[in-house]
Computed example of a mutant assay.
Amino acid sequence: MIDHTGIGVADIRRSALFYDAALGALGWRRVRQMPDDVGTDGIAYGVDHPIFWIDRFHPHSVRQHTAFAASSRSQVDAFHAAALAAGGTDNGRPGLRWPNYYAAFVLDPDGNNMEAIFRGD
């Protein structure tokens, strides 16, 4: 089981706008920042504790893939719409990929492939 993970980003403020919107659509929020007063070095997202970090310490623009669990198809749709409105690039509109695998894909400002997925009917 993974406790938390993260990626490097080129511009933390620009990426924070993207992730605030995209992950906010999934019910996540900023739960920690480094340093605590500004958040220019790293920002963690989750519900109660850090699950996904963006930071300036790790390599950026290496085209990583991360899939976030959604609680419904409509939440996948909301993730996709919010991510595009926040500057993301469509990389796969919401839709059924396999039986019980409804997903959408968006490239973040650094070209990372972010996915929201709902496994269910």
Rank of each mutant, 00 (worst) to 15 (best):
M1T: 14
I2T: 14
I2L: 15
H4A: 11
H4N: 13
T5Q: 13
G6T: 01
G6S: 04
G8I: 03
G8P: 03
A10Q: 12
A10E: 14
I12N: 00
A16E: 04
F18Q: 00
F18M: 01
D20Q: 07
G24S: 05
G24Y: 08
A25L: 09
A25I: 09
G27K: 08
W28T: 00
W28P: 00
W28A: 07
R29D: 05
R32N: 08
Q33V: 14
M34W: 10
V38E: 08
T40M: 03
I43A: 00
A44W: 12
A44S: 08
A44I: 06
Y45E: 03
Y45T: 04
V47D: 09
D48T: 02
P50H: 11
I51T: 12
I54R: 00
R56I: 12
R56K: 09
F57C: 01
P59G: 09
P59H: 13
V62N: 15
R63A: 15
Q64L: 15
H65Y: 15
H65K: 14
T66I: 15
A67Y: 10
F68S: 05
A70C: 06
S71F: 04
R73E: 11
V76P: 08
A83Q: 01
A85Q: 13
A86Q: 07
D90L: 06
N91A: 15
R93I: 10
P94V: 05
G95Y: 13
N100I: 00
N100T: 04
Y101Q: 14
Y101S: 13
D108E: 03
P109N: 03
D110H: 01
G111L: 11
N112Y: 13
N112M: 11
M114S: 08
M114N: 14
E115D: 12
A116M: 04
I117W: 12
R119H: 15
R119K: 14
G120T: 11
D121W: 10
